[in-house]
């Protein structure tokens, strides 16, 4: 279970506080105006920004001392989720072994993961030869292989068209169910939240609020959400 214990994030004059826990397996949308600190929240959980105060816990143990790669976390950034000089198979292989020491069984797992996201047979392609949707699928396939219990999505599908984005979100949902992962997904689009997420964390006015059931939130939107939705 992910727990934010009186966390304070600070960057210059910017401050963001969070004090809540996420249910295991929850699918949570992170919403709020630009610059409110949605990405900052994810970066702190992923280990790229140390909290100024408070602790981030996973199943009761403090994540603070762990570097990003050793946290129980997979993260998809807005872009640059794959190394352009490596093939798809190598990019996915990094999810199994960062030193790319892969046995025959590992190669089969990579091939299976590519099949799973609909990229079967493309293992020798480089990222430049793929479309935006295929890039997203490949990054998800790597997250599938890493099988970390916490999946963070920092708008990796923002550049995709609506239909493609809906496909990707459906895929995220399936993978989350298969791996039992807790998902935190930054989004601007209330549609995404309604369709995909059971809960919403509203980030506004220096506070990342406790997760609330999506239906309840949109039924009785607080002032900050009304301002954001316009």
């Amino acid at each position: 279970m992910l727990q934010l214990e009186r966390v304070v994030l600070a960057q210059g004059a910017f401050r963001l506080t969070a004090d809540w826990a996420a249910e295991p397996g929850a699918l949570i949308a992170v919403m709020g105006p630009s610059g409110a600190g949605k990405s900052t929240l994810l970066m702190a959980i992923a280990g790229f920004l140390a909290p100024a105060a408070g602790r981030i816990l996973w199943n009761g143990s403090d994540l603070g001392p762990l570097p990003p790669g050793q946290r129980p976390v997979s993260i998809l950034f807005q872009d640059q989720n794959l190394f352009p000089h490596l093939t798809l198979a190598q990019n996915l292989g990094l999810g199994i072994s960062p030193r790319l020491r892969l046995g025959a069984a590992d190669h089969r797992r990579v091939a299976a993961a590519l099949d799973r996201v609909g990229l079967g047979g493309l293992h020798n392609r480089r990222p430049a030869q793929l479309s935006g949707g295929q890039l997203g699928r490949a990054a998800l396939a790597r997250a599938l292989l890493r099988a970390r219990p916490l999946l963070l999505l920092d708008e990796p599908f923002a550049a995709l068209g609506p239909a493609l984005k809906a496909d990707m979100l459906a895929l995220v949902g399936e993978i989350a169910v298969e791996t039992g992962a807790t998902v935190l997904m930054v989004t601007h689009d209330p549609q995404d939240a309604r369709r995909f997420a059971g809960q919403v964390v509203l980030v506004a006015d220096g506070v990342a609020a406790t997760p609330v059931a999506t239906a309840d939130l949109f039924a009785r939107p607080p002032q900050a959400l009304r301002d954001y939705l316009g």
Partner: peptide
């Protein structure tokens, strides 16, 4: 700037980082 975070997120360190990221890039 381009790949530091991704490498850290994938726990690419030391020799592996040199071999699979720095030298080819």
């Amino acid at each position: 700037a381009g790949f530091g975070r991704l490498a850290a997120a994938l726990d690419l360190r030391g020799w592996a980082r040199l071999r699979w990221l720095v030298l080819p890039r």
